[in-house]
């Protein structure tokens, strides 16, 4: 693709009025990552990382500044069906089966579902839910529901994948498993991905670069490049490089938290 192939966050500010007091969720935040890379946003609660993700999704508008991917603004991207998003809560429609939940974005974009049945089936296999196609969310475990929501985020083959603590509600063991699975899925198509998390190990395991954020006002203090080779494995979680990066990130987080 010609022109700039970038995810670009340019001097973005967003504040909220909470019962009379103005909270600066984001103040003059700028970030730039190459298209097709994996960015993690990490920081304490209230540092504006979720706000930033919602701005990227076009669910909210900044008070100042601009966001774009390859020069296109989030609202246009959204309408093109270029964005896939998964939340901490799977937010599945409880009355729809796994298959129909995954098909939802296609229906919204008025695509002919018959043409996509093979893709939906392969996504179900990819996230390991074969045999559960016709189950409704109430019959699935928390981890399975989260896989459905990730499959749903992928069904339109989005150029941008936005993940808002998608594994935050899962236990540690399941979370690591899902991290590795997500990496597998991501490596197949390499959509530009932004992951919001508060887990240092998750950020390192998945991201090409980690933006460390801090609160009051929400801002980016440093962007750390993660140069570990892919695919990253569970052995790597125990390596010295991994720990060195983890120490550096936690130092950044704690210095600024107590500052």
């Amino acid at each position: 693709m010609a022109g700039e192939t970038l995810l670009k966050i340019d001097n973005v500010s967003r504040s909220f009025d909470l019962r009379g007091t103005v909270v600066h969720a984001l103040k003059n935040v700028s970030l730039q990552v190459p298209a097709g890379s994996f960015l993690a946003l990490i920081g304490p609660s209230g540092c504006g990382k979720s706000t930033l993700l919602r701005l990227l999704a076009g669910l909210d508008t900044p008070d100042a500044g601009a966001l774009s991917v390859n020069g296109v603004d989030p609202f246009t991207l959204r309408q093109q069906g270029s964005i896939g998003m998964a939340f901490q809560d799977p937010a599945l429609l409880p009355w729809r089966s796994v298959r129909k939940n995954i098909a939802l974005p296609l229906q919204i974009l008025k695509r002919n579902l018959d043409e996509y049945s093979a893709r939906i089936q392969s996504l179900i296999e990819l996230v390991g839910l074969s045999g559960f196609e016709d189950a409704v969310p109430g019959q699935l475990s928390g981890g399975m529901r989260q896989r459905v929501s990730i499959a749903r985020a992928l069904v339109t083959e989005p150029n941008i994948l936005l993940l808002d603590e998608p594994f935050g509600a899962l236990d540690e063991i399941l979370r690591r498993q899902m991290n590795l699975e997500l990496q597998q899925i991501w490596m197949k198509r390499r959509p530009t991905t932004v992951l919001v998390t508060h887990a240092i190990d998750e950020a390192i395991a998945l991201a090409d670069s980690v933006a460390v954020m801090t609160s009051r006002p929400g801002r980016v203090v440093e962007v750390v490049q993660i140069d570990l080779p892919r695919p990253r494995t569970t052995e790597m979680f125990r390596s010295t490089e991994f720990h060195a990066i983890a120490d550096h990130l936690s130092e950044l987080l704690f210095t600024h938290a107590t500052a």
Partner: peptide, 23 residues
Amino acid sequence: RLAEVIRVSGGTDRDVMRFVRLR
């Protein structure tokens, strides 16, 4: 959150009504 899922996928208020609210 259900409404946000619809909006992120390019849906309008009408889609939120059709796919979520009425049901």
